[in-house]
Design a binder for these strands. Structure first.
Length: 488
RNA sequence: GGCGCAUUCGUCUAGUGGCCCAGGACACCGCCCUCUCAAGGCGGAGAUCGCGGGUUCGAAUCCCGCAUGCGCUACCA
């Protein structure tokens, strides 16, 4: 029996990183076992439907490279993969449950239900349905229907026994069946509830393992009951812990970015996000911190999944992103950087952004940024000649009281640069170090002067590599421009 | 209120009875390297393994109780 797992989001909003991680683990397990990864859309709640959600779900999965073998846009032999298109299946099994006596129609109004819930709560009793419609006669049901009352279908939960399952990550979990309410399986609008839809689809789609969030543990016995009533074998369950906010509270907008796509826009790499998410709640060993997609697939196992909820540590993600920036092949970074710069550089920079410049910039800046959104600020001067520094910026601490000394240094530097036959960074550096000696300046002081003149900022890629890349002519112009700023 | 799940440095984690008075990583601090900023190297601080009882020669690891957090208890998923 091949492994068949599914990621089953409901399109009620942009998927947050927690659900993306659920998708990741499902995908990893499928790939590790040469199984099948299925995407199924659970849109049975029409009131919460969000039309932007679907694209965001696809987009998040694609961004991380989590390709699905069956599902919307991929097709497959078990479709359709959108629950609103599978209504006849749920209807059929709801009816079967009624016929078998495992379920019944309930005509209670939401008002009545709210009342009994409030009443029971007041008496400090578990809020549950009072089974008012459980034993209606056929005649009574007919009467209610004739009166136009809408009905839901409720499961007739047994009063005795225990319902249990063996969870792969949590072990044996057991519930007193009597504590389970007569839960609704089909709503009055004809749509199934998640419980019925889950069970019917997981069975029909021959899902072998259900890997899902922790929050489903308490719902699992209800689903087990459905499997039993329908005479089906339940899949294996593995409930994984959830991701919490940095303060260990439930992840929410308060904590900043929520969706994977927002992280993408901030300049996090999919490689880093995958690594980061995959190592929350799963580990290879006691040492591994950086792990590739291939290693993940090779080593992933349900047995090594952790049980505890984990906080989302942004600083760790950011560090990891920096690590990937340092390790990814230059060609890939060139692509990434160019794409980013197209949108982030000021208008003064001509488009399209020059690829060759980007390519040569990669080794100079890759270890100086942690996120792509820091890139533009660092390299603007390579693409635009517009400088915005002031005389004070230029003089810095060292030349604060000595602008004539700075001016002299610029003139001398320009002269030296002019005289250079080979415009390569070792030669430029040698010349400027020589100049510093001659001027009886500390090399660092002179270099800082040049740095601001040439790159416009006190923080920049290595000075002489930058000058080489900029070219002699542009450097000379910038030295001249600095002089102008100083003497004005 | 009931039921369920969880609990190791601030954070992510390793650990399945002796190798652990607990290992790695992020963050933090110091030093080194250095043209700025980074990156890198070395070192440091940081966890009475939630608490209390057991079991055992020996427990972070097994058992019981408690506490705390979270989840479910919806015609949400």
């Amino acid at each position: 029996m091949p492994v068949r797992v599914r990621f089953a989001p409901s399109p009620t909003g942009i998927p947050h990183v927690g659900s993306v991680r659920t998708a990741l683990f499902n995908w990893l397990y499928a790939r590790h076992t040469d199984g099948v990864f299925i995407l199924r859309i659970e849109d049975t709640d029409r009131s919460r439907y969000d039309p932007r959600a679907l694209e965001a779900i696809f987009g998040s999965l694609r961004w991380l490279g989590l390709d699905w073998d069956e599902g919307p846009e991929a097709g497959g032999d078990y479709g359709p993969y959108v629950q609103s298109e599978r209504l006849e299946h749920y209807e059929r099994y709801a009816r079967q449950l009624i016929e078998q006596g495992n379920a019944y129609e309930c005509f209670c109004s939401t008002e009545r239900l709210a009342e009994i819930r409030a009443e029971r709560q007041r008496r400090k009793q578990p809020p549950r349905y009072d089974r008012h419609c459980r034993d209606l006669t056929a005649a009574e049901r007919e009467e209610r229907r004739a009166a136009g009352d809408e009905a839901v279908v409720r499961f007739r939960t047994p009063d005795e026994g225990t319902t249990s399952f063996d969870d792969i990550v949590r072990g044996h979990v057991e519930f007193e069946t009597a504590t389970i309410d007569d839960f609704v399986v089909r709503k009055s609008d004809g749509f199934p509830t998640a419980h019925l839809a889950h069970v019917v689809d997981d069975h029909l789609m021959e899902i072998s393992h259900v890997l899902r969030g922790d929050e489903w543990v308490s719902s699992t016995p209800r689903q087990i009951l459905l499997y039993q009533a329908l005479g089906w074998e339940p899949p294996q369950f593995a409930h994984m812990s959830v991701i919490l906010g940095p303060d260990k509270a439930k992840l929410s907008k308060r904590h900043g970015a929520l969706s994977a796509l927002e992280y993408r826009d901030q300049g996090y790499l999919p490689e880093a996000m995958l690594n980061f998410l995959g190592l929350i709640g799963w580990s290879l060993d006691d040492k591994t911190v950086l792990i590739s997609r291939e290693q993940f697939i090779e080593h992933f196992s349900l047995e090594r999944m952790g049980k505890n909820p984990a906080a989302f540590d942004l600083e760790r993600l950011t560090w990891m992103n920096g690590a990937y920036l340092r390790e990814l092949p230059e060609e890939r970074l060139t692509e990434l950087f160019a794409e980013r710069l197209e949108s982030d550089l000021p208008d003064a920079a001509p488009r399209p952004i020059d690829r060759e410049t980007v390519r040569r910039l990669v080794p100079l800046v890759r270890e100086r940024i942690k996120r792509l959104d820091e890139l533009a600020e660092l390299v603007t001067s390579f693409f635009s000649d517009e400088m915005s520094y002031t005389a004070d910026d230029l003089l810095g601490k060292q030349f604060k009281e000595d602008s004539s000394g700075a001016a002299a240094a610029f003139r001398a530097a320009a002269q030296r640069a002019e005289a250079l036959s080979a415009w390569e960074h070792p030669a430029i550096e040698e010349a400027m170090r020589g100049l510093a000696d001659e001027l009886e300046l500390k090399a660092g002081a002179l270099f800082m002067l040049l740095r601001v003149a040439v790159t416009g900022r006190a923080i920049s890629p290595p000075l002489f590599e930058s000058m080489e890349l900029l070219g002699k002519e542009r450097c000379l112009k910038r030295l001249q421009a600095a002089l102008t700023v100083l003497t004005k």
